[in-house]
Write a protein that binds this DNA or RNA. Structure first.
Lengths: 205, 205
DNA sequence: GGAAACTAGGACCGACCAGTCCTAAACGCA
DNA sequence: TGCGTTTAGGACTGGTCGGTCCTAGTTTCC
């Protein structure tokens, strides 16, 4: 992938994540990625919409590389991986100073009812994300209770995390996100056959 | 309160809830609330920002009237009230056809990093909402385990609900929200001294 | 009856918006 | 050497934005 194009997408992702899509102008993106002018931008993208779509696609790829990679780590116990994944989200949020860095939640709230193309793409990211967690839960099924609904649980995990990130962002308080991550882990442990036999100390309180 | 002013606020709340703040123009609001022109609007509001602030304030009042009133109903068991409150949010979301009606989540995601005035007001709404749940949990403390952290639990409930509403909105599927509400109730029941002694059948599955 | 508030509606402002068009210099590679 | 891509940058268009100003008719209430 072209370096310059990637730079533009990164800059746009940050701006959209902070300000939203409609509040982010092409000129903002040009300024942030130090392009020479409009025509330089339009050399790489046909429209603002195309930029938005690709920011969204790239968002999941980036996220898959960093965060979701933990979910697939074969040497670690599945449920331990889930705990580490939650920790990594909290850590990334703390590293951003409780500011919005990923344009995902922002775009979801802004475009869900306003732009069908964005809505469908965001829904697709949700599905891909959830299916990663579902296959992890499938892998951990010997440890899990028989009546665990993997689809429902994966959605709940994502909803709690996204809602927590939003709330923590508004309050500018990492403790809020840490508390939600803690409760979420307690909920997940509830689905184990032996809730007290936590596979690794760091997964607990 | 002035009728016309209230109409404008209602119209603006719907538009902002659907499109976001920056994507909603004054002209949109004028059109939606059938005002005669710009000067008619500016007769009631000094600026778009003032409109946004008051939409947010009104949002909580409206919400307090309808939804949060359930939390204070003195004749019903506290934990049962919490369950009914969650049901009422799901029902309202379903009634809107899984579209965004309340500008709260939308504004939170859009403005948290972009506008300090909005951020502080949204944070205040979170606090007021959470404190309602906290006092309910305090009321229910004889039924609850000793180590229940009411502040943390109230935040978790709100985060899960808001995250669930967002996800359900993106997927346009009420089942998503219903599943999250179900899991959230299961988590809440986990904090009871006698988890199996559910006070009322409708609080369960 | 008169003042104050409300309704109505048009003209206008500077700023910004997404997007187009144009010229021309620097670059990479065969 | 030459050709295609990238960088550079300015001028421009039609439209929308938030906001102001102005005139004038209508209602409300003391």
């Amino acid at each position: 992938m072209n370096t310059r194009r990637a730079q533009i997408l990164d800059a746009a992702a940050v701006l959209i994540g902070r300000q939203g899509y409609s509040a982010t102008s092409i000129d903002d993106v040009i300024k942030e990625s130090r392009l020479s002018g409009k025509s330089h931008f339009y050399h790489y993208f046909r429209s603002k919409e195309e930029l938005g779509f690709e920011v969204l696609d790239r968002q999941f790829e980036r996220f898959a590389e960093r965060g979701l990679a933990i979910l697939r780590e074969p040497m670690i116990d599945p449920m331990e991986r889930l705990s580490l994944f939650i920790d990594s989200l909290v850590a990334a949020h703390a590293a951003r100073g409780c500011h919005g860095g990923s344009p995902f939640g922002t775009l979801a709230a802004e475009m869900a009812d306003a732009h069908e193309g964005f809505r469908l793409r965001i829904a697709q990211v949700f599905v891909r994300w959830a299916s990663q967690i579902q296959s992890l839960l499938w892998e951990a099924r010997p440890q899990l209770l028989d009546d665990v609904d993997a689809v429902r649980l994966s959605r709940f995990i994502i909803a709690a995390l996204e809602g927590g990130l939003m709330m923590s962002r508004v309050k500018r308080d990492i403790v809020v996100m840490e508390g939600i991550a803690l409760d979420l882990k307690r909920f997940i442990v509830m689905h184990l056959r032996e809730p007290n036999a936590v596979p690794h100390p760091s997964a607990g309180v």
